[in-house]
């Protein structure tokens, strides 16, 4: 009876689009054509669905979609992109770790600390040059609660929280790939190291103490970190 048109529109969307609306996340592996179909479906959402309860989660159109588009343009003809997105946010059950008591002295009566770990995005793409690109973005929030009592017996409490974001990127090179150390080091906020093995891996990581203020800044940060492994190969031209 209610929201009949919008329910019908939702039912016609891509299955992963529906999962984003109802479960606020999805995990899927598919080739570039499959992701293009999902993105086309997501772009139709705003015109057909107005109800707030069925709105797309934050970071969908401004972070997730641009990243999928850019990585899909690098996939080979048989390459697939795996995406695990959890856009439920930090304040959901299961993401908060155990609470830990901190050592205190008067007038502090008690202090406790808990960590919230939110790995909200994981990408794995098989690129057309034979390498494998993996991206992991994790938000970590430290929550502290302090209780204190003043000389007149009044009890007060205070909560504080601090959020940092970790971006990790790994590119596993093809077996016979030639790599070299880049001419310039990465910016100070990006760390890079090489893991030798049958297939050489180049890892880049960054910890952001200030959260990106916009979706565009978030995408830029992730792509900036993902750039570092590609500077280690002199020729970044694959087979179209």
């Amino acid at each position: 009876m209610f929201w009949r048109d919008q329910k019908a529109a939702l039912a016609g969307f891509h299955p992963l689009h529906q999962a984003l609306v109802h479960e606020r996340g999805f995990a899927a592996t598919q080739p570039a054509q499959g992701w293009t179909a999902l993105i086309d479906s997501l772009y139709r959402h705003a015109g057909l669905v107005k109800r707030g309860k069925w709105a797309l989660p934050a970071r969908t159109l401004d972070v997730l979609v641009p990243l999928i588009i850019e990585i899909c343009s690098d996939l080979g003809p048989k390459g697939t992109l795996a995406v695990t997105a959890d856009l439920r946010g930090r304040d959901v059950p299961g993401k908060t770790g155990p609470e830990r008591k901190l050592a205190v002295r008067p007038p502090i009566r008690s202090a406790s600390e808990a960590w919230v770990v939110d790995p909200w995005l994981r990408l794995r793409g098989e690129l057309r040059d034979g390498s494998i690109l993996e991206i992991l973005v994790v938000d970590r929030e430290r929550k502290r609660k302090i209780t204190k009592r003043n000389p007149r017996g009044k009890t007060k409490w205070k909560r504080k929280s601090k959020v940092v974001q970790t971006i990790r990127v790994r590119r596993r090179l093809p077996v016979d790939a030639v790599s070299r150390v880049p001419a310039t080091p990465p910016p100070p906020w990006i760390g890079a190291f090489v893991r030798e093995g049958e297939r050489r891996s180049i890892l880049a990581a960054a910890k952001l103490t200030r959260m990106p203020a916009s979706g565009q800044e978030q995408v830029d940060r992730i792509l900036s970190v993902a750039t570092e492994p590609f500077r280690w190969t002199s020729e970044n031209r694959g087979i179209a």
């Binding site: 850019e70 990585i71 343009s73 690098d74 690129l127 057309r128 040059d129 390498s131 690109l133 993902a226 750039t227 590609f230 970044n236 031209r237 694959g238 087979i239 179209a240």
Partner: peptide, 12 residues
């Protein structure tokens, strides 16, 4: 030119 990190030519 196609691609984002790994550049290539379209070739069609």
């Amino acid at each position: 030119t196609t691609g984002f990190f790994t550049l290539g030519k379209c070739g069609v």
